[in-house]
Write a protein that binds this DNA or RNA. Structure first.
Lengths: 334, 334
DNA sequence: ATGAAAGCGCTAACAC
DNA sequence: GTGTTAGCGCTTTCAT
């Protein structure tokens, strides 16, 4: 990489003259500016980012800590973050916590040494289970702002972007009730997550408010074979005529299993799941889905962080944005 | 963030003493080392990464340019890269090219200013179509090594990690031939990619070598409704008794569609696809899949780059690693 | 055993 | 209009 020093030497001027010329300072003569710019162009000069960061004490880089990059929703949020950040000239350093508290702490620690200007993160499963929040507080008190999304730690004072998880399943369940479904089941692989709990509550609330509904809840663990679990669940409860799935796969499996069992969809049974657009093609008929607008969530989170970094918000004035879900009606419901 | 300067002031010693003490230099007295370390601990001192980078002229950061983070295979490779890099103390800056040549160039350009020590990337679709490689060559000649994976530019001299795409579909097709399938179809949504072409060739070669096989090829464009396309394809060619899918979704859709049409799987028709483990649960019976070992690909790529950065390889000695696919036999084949 | 000083690449306040 | 200098945080060589 060519430096200001080298350009200066070759042009027989001082380093600061070159610097000023390139930054269009009015102090420098027209002729000099021209000469400098031409040589810089020739050598494809680019200011050294590291030197700038050191000088200006900011890196224009955002640390993103994500529990699981293979989760389609989280990947999509990351996509949204990246796109928005790029717009504003920010880069993204990604750490994957793998749902582990330890790795989450490490990531935070490792980047809180001048590598990034702030963080966007979604809380790891283990962190939520153990309810640890000290590491977040410490990072914030070091002067590095955090924006949390989706899985947030409510007791940490920072900007947040969340999904209306409760309303989503509540409304979806009401939808099935409106279809005159009498035996509506709830299937989830994410019991232990904050958002999983909220989704379960939404379902329960809808049933209770409409009286006379028996809950049918299937909880699937990571080690389980979800196909088998769902198959025996639907066999054991043949009266089920509606399914709400809280995660990105069990809705698809439930629909395919119902078909396998000879049920007509949506005549005999309706299914609503959390699948992405592409995954909603994995069932025939296509799955009616709850969309979380992951890209928008990512974009909002990036927006909030960048705003804060540019001091457009004051220290204490934290915000929580709630992104509404939409139900995309397809052929698996009436 | 606390600095050496602040520690030095508080301890009434010089900056260099503090630095040496923290780096366990033998020059410094035992007692002083102890005092320094205690204070550093107390203030949670961490050396400023940016200053180190500037001083040492390396960032311990890898730039990763990925065409599409929502592609499960690419996301998994990224996961592998991140994990391996973290092991060696490297961070990952991610750019998403979105399959666009322009964004790929920008990403390369933007990070080639001291932000990263080298790149790992998979070539964008547009770049492959236009066959542009100048930007890669320029980056390498600037002294920043590149490791390409999966979709590579063969004319660029650099380390590469590729998949045996040709063999994968060749062998998969042979497998169906061994099952006495007579009318084997090939379905792909990735015609324009280098890897898509290789996969098509593997299929064709297997058919040709075994004589008397008519090819049935369905090519799906991005704007198409793949369910409809596949449905009409299978209806129009009811003699099809085997399907090889070249991408991550059409195998699943083909299997579900065959079931829908009343075909028995695998009795009447076998299907092999490229789905991930979790997606292979989206069909009943579960899909037999070609696994690409994405995490290993990512890990290998990271290994190669880090080796090169640590000068364990000489300038001109570039390597190409071929990662073998495996067929994970499930219930959609005999 | 400790400290002073140079230098990584850059900007900017301050000479001249 | 151009140059000198200091300084961002750190390591390291060279005094003392």
């Amino acid at each position: 990489m060519v430096t200001l020093k080298q350009l200066a030497k070759e042009l027989n001027v001082s380093i600061s003259t070159v610097s000023k010329a390139l930054n269009n300072s009015v102090e420098i003569g027209e002729e000099t500016v021209k000469r400098v710019k031409e040589l810089a162009e020739l050598y494809n000069y680019k200011p050294n980012k590291v030197a700038l960061s050191l000088k200006q004490n900011k890196t224009k880089t955002i640390g993103v800590i994500i529990p699981d990059i293979l989760n389609h929703f989280l990947a999509k949020v990351l996509f949204g973050i990246e796109r928005e950040a790029t717009k504003y000239g920010y880069n993204i350093i990604t750490c994957i916590s793998n749902e582990s508290l330890e790795k989450e702490k490490d990531g935070l620690q490792l980047l809180a040494n001048g590598s990034v200007d702030g963080f966007i993160l979604s809380v790891a499963q283990e962190t939520q289970i153990k309810n640890e929040i000290e590491h977040f507080k410490r990072t914030i008190s070091q002067g590095l702002p955090i924006v949390m999304f989706d899985r947030v730690a409510h007791d940490v004072l920072c900007d947040k972007v969340i999904v209306d998880d409760f309303d989503a399943t509540y409304n979806a369940t009401l939808g099935l009730i409106a279809e005159k479904r009498k035996h509506i089941a709830f299937i989830s692989t994410i019991d232990s997550l904050s958002v999983g709990k909220l989704r379960a509550r939404g379902y329960n609330k809808a049933l209770i408010e409409n009286g006379n509904y028996e809950p049918y809840v299937l909880s699937i663990k990571k080690k389980d074979d979800s196909q088998k679990k769902i198959l025996s669940f639907l066999k054991k409860n043949p009266q089920i005529d509606g399914v709400i799935s809280a995660d990105s796969s069990s809705g698809i499996i439930a629909l395919n299993t119902a078909i396998k069992l000879g049920r007509k969809v949506p005549k005999d049974i309706s299914v609503i799941g959390y699948a992405s657009k592409s995954d909603s093609y994995h069932t025939i008929p296509k799955l009616t889905t709850i969309r979380q607008h992951a890209k928008e969530i990512g974009a909002s989170a990036a927006q909030m962080l960048i705003n804060r970094l540019q001091n457009k918000t004051t220290q204490e004035d934290v915000k929580t944005i709630i992104v509404k879900t939409s139900v995309i009606k397809s052929k698996s419901t009436l």
